[in-house]
Design a protein around this nucleic acid. Structure first.
Length: 463
RNA sequence: UGCCGCAUAGCUCAGUCGGUAGAGCAGCUGACUGUUAAUCAGCGGGUCGUAGGUUCGAGUCCUACUGCGGCAGCCA
């Protein structure tokens, strides 16, 4: 057997008349007197191939093993289909059953199942319509991300997954070192001599590659990461994972406006690519998952994103007359209900908010001259809230050092990061984008656990 | 982590006022010459999440626990 065989996607696009072999897993079968219809799928496309077996073409004893879930190969001739529903079908005269599947106990059924149930049988759910489509879109989106950056001269870099950098403030971290103790949220080695520890210092799984990406940007101009990221918060929502994939571009000679431009261009490019490349899958999502999906995505690609400052957003929220549960005032972090009102009710498409109060943002963001705000930018999207968080970085050594001390952090822990501002500093900017949140947006799926093959969340590390 | 909700057949659910467990789908058997969520007829399928409690009697009421889900917080 050679991996270079033909995919069902290619068979379905072929002209009738050729002898072919079709490999796949049985989705469903229907029987009439003297004729069997079998639908098989190999994951290469949304559509199934209809295999037609007329009486006598294949021994009935063998056909008995052709049940939902079985893995098979049918040989025969590709013919024009006389019935509606498909252009071509396979008139089969040969069958190989690689793996049968007892219909009485195989958990996937011909009929739809709840996403909650499918999460319990995640090892099979990719064989169904919805998750096949999700994972094809996930693949195409990954490819689109790389193409977008590569086409623009960005270098793909790999930042460490194990890191000792623990104070970026992005979130709680998973400890890697076996010799750690925790006191008041601070980690310390419990061995008396650090040399007895593998790393000689507390080490964790990364919550962001940004700080390291900055060092590469200040050498190679435009770079990006696309890799796994870990957050240990006890967070239980439809928008959070303990292990997710994050995309982090970082650009030298770029300010917050350039950063916003890139973020908008990026989202439009990736979504546009998916509309083109995954049309059948997105049509399915539009039909079964999120009714206005295609219209919304088309609108996003064609219209400029709304841009406003945090201060303007606060004014709009204050003037909205909405009975918000959480109070709106300058200096407050925006709550989900506020983001939702802005993106869904006020604007109706993605919104980029900038210039947040420095108190609610990270230490590395560039301070504005007003002394109160920083050049942060968040892209908020209808349905899912924050999809991108980024900023222009503080490139001035004195300002950054002062800010680190002001926030009670130890400048000694940021030696190499401050060195960047000490030697050859440059204006630079970047952002982080949660890949699964992007997938939620483009597929219309509601739970982030359903856009990754095997999700990790508090209490959930199955498979 | 907090609040709310749910847990009954393989799946999705109903189960009235506390009185011996139901449906649809799936599966199985059969019928039908082209189906495509096929259709039609029949059959099998249950420790009602776990442990206590109230009661003559608990799927149903009470308590705890476990699991799952939604929302919120946290965040990308």
């Amino acid at each position: 057997m050679d991996y270079r065989r033909t995919y069902l996607r290619d068979l379905l696009a072929s002209e009738p008349g050729v002898e072919v072999s079709a490999y796949g897993w049985v989705k469903t079968r229907r029987d009439s007197k003297g004729i069997h219809f079998v639908q098989i799928n190999d994951g290469s496309c949304f559509a199934d191939l209809q295999v037609v077996v007329t009486e006598g073409a294949i021994p009935e004893a063998a056909m008995r093993q052709v049940t939902t879930g079985a893995c098979v190969r049918f040989d025969g001739k590709l013919v024009a289909s006389p019935a509606a529903g498909q252009a071509v079908e396979l008139a089969a005269d040969g069958l190989e059953v690689y793996g049968s599947a007892d219909p009485a106990t195989y958990p996937m059924q011909k009929k739809g199942a709840s996403f909650e149930f499918l999460r319990e049988i995640a090892h099979f759910r990719a064989r169904g319509n919805t998750f096949g489509a999700v994972f094809r879109v996930r693949n195409a989106a990954s490819d689109a991300v790389h193409r977008f950056f590569q086409d623009r001269g960005f270098l793909y870099i790999h930042t460490p997954i194990i890191t000792a950098s623990d104070a970026e403030g992005a979130g709680a971290m998973f400890a890697v070192s076996p010799n750690l103790t925790v006191e008041d949220g601070k980690y310390a080695l419990k061995v008396s001599d650090p040399a007895d520890d593998f790393f000689g210092k507390p080490a964790f799984l990364t919550v962001s590659g940004q700080l390291e990406a900055e060092t590469l940007a200040l050498a190679m101009t435009n770079v990006y990461t696309f890799g796994p990221t870990f957050r240990a918060e006890n967070s239980n929502s439809t928008r959070h994972l303990a292990e997710f994939w994050m995309i982090e571009p970082e650009m030298a000679f770029c300010d917050i406006v350039g950063n916003m431009n890139l973020a908008e261009e990026f989202l439009k490019d990736v979504i546009g690519t998916l509309l083109d490349r995954c049309a059948a899958d997105l049509e399915f999502f539009n039909k079964r998952i999120e009714p206005d999906l295609l219209a919304t995505l088309g609108h996003v690609v064609e219209s400029p994103f709304e841009r406003m400052t945090y201060t303007e957003a606060i004014r709009l929220l204050e003037a909205s007359g909405e009975p918000f549960e959480f109070p709106v005032f300058w200096g407050a972090d925006l709550q989900s209900e506020h983001e939702r009102w802005l993106t869904e009710k006020k604007v109706g498409r993605p919104v980029i908010l900038t210039d947040y109060p420095k108190q609610i943002k990270a230490f590395y963001m560039k301070q504005n001259d007003d002394g109160k705000t920083v050049r942060a930018m968040d892209v908020l999207a209808p349905r899912i809230g924050e999809i991108i968080g980024g900023s222009q970085r503080e490139e001035r050594l004195d300002v950054l050092s002062a800010r680190i001390r002001e926030m009670g952090m130890d400048p000694d822990h940021y030696g190499w990061y401050l060195d960047l501002r000490r030697f050859g500093s440059a204006p630079h900017a970047g952002f982080g984008l949660g890949f699964e949140r992007l997938l939620l947006y483009v597929t219309g799926m509601k739970n982030i656990r359903d856009v990754i093959p095997y999700h990790r969340a508090p209490g959930q590390a199955d498979f």
